[in-house]
Design a protein around this nucleic acid. Sequence first.
DNA 1: CAAAGGTCCTGCTCGC
DNA 2: TGCGAGCAGGACCTTT
Length: 271
Amino acid sequence: MPELPEVETTRCGISPYILNHKVRAFNIWEPRLRWPVPTALAKILPGQRIDSIERRAKYLLLGTGVGTLIIHLGMSGSLRIVTAESAPQTHDHVDMIMDNGQGLRLRDPRRFGAVLWTAQDPYQHPLLRHIGPEPLAKAFRGNYLHSACRKRRCAIKTLLMNAHVVAGVGNIYASEALYHAGIRPGRAAGRLSRQDCKALAAAIKSTLKQAIRAGGTTLKDFTNSAGQAGYFSQSLRVYGRQDQPCGRCGHPIKRKIIAQRASYYCPKCQS
DNA sequence: CAAAGGTCCTGCTCGC
DNA sequence: TGCGAGCAGGACCTTT
């Protein structure tokens, strides 16, 4: 579910309730996520103030004076603001109750998500250390993308979804950005021109920015921290639109599996 | 039964 | 031959 815009939407949604508040209790109802949730958190976090909430790639970083809580939503995870007395439901795995009586609750049916803890610099954590530039940062531009593509034989879409190359681009926005740049998802990355890469970097930035403004994409079950759907799904040009006419030329949108992931493109507008 | 928005890990292949 | 990088596939889960 959540790609960069959805995680960013979540970050903005939870901040007012969490930032600068102290943790009253940390409850682990189901520790079996992608990696076991550290049980020590129930002892470590109470009394700590959350003094920063950042996002790196699709990871949320909740900073305290003694360490950082690292949260990943995986494929089906979501964070909701709840009241302390509301009971957890099926697939609710972790609660962080704050001193204001509000709480942060992680729901994740598929349990591909993660809740981790580090007492060191979170950006040096093994999961974060080798992640590529943020796509909305200045460092991510055509030149960078072009050099990252060199000698790569994998499909350009696969390259975009590689977190070591660029952070936070998932299956939906990879397809969408490639459509806007006029590049087929299956093209070998190494065969993109400098000009292609320039257009693609720009398309990634504009697509992600627009999605963040719309509050993310709701396909099945993504909601923001208040439980509302994002409306970027209305702006999707190719994702999930197999056999529907391309908005630019009318040709039917094609669906093709690339590296085991569904990929969508217009065979006429993209080459 | 297949597929779903993520991504780490393993083991293979390829090119120097 | 040996080594490292790149890459495909499997794994983790539940729901529709």
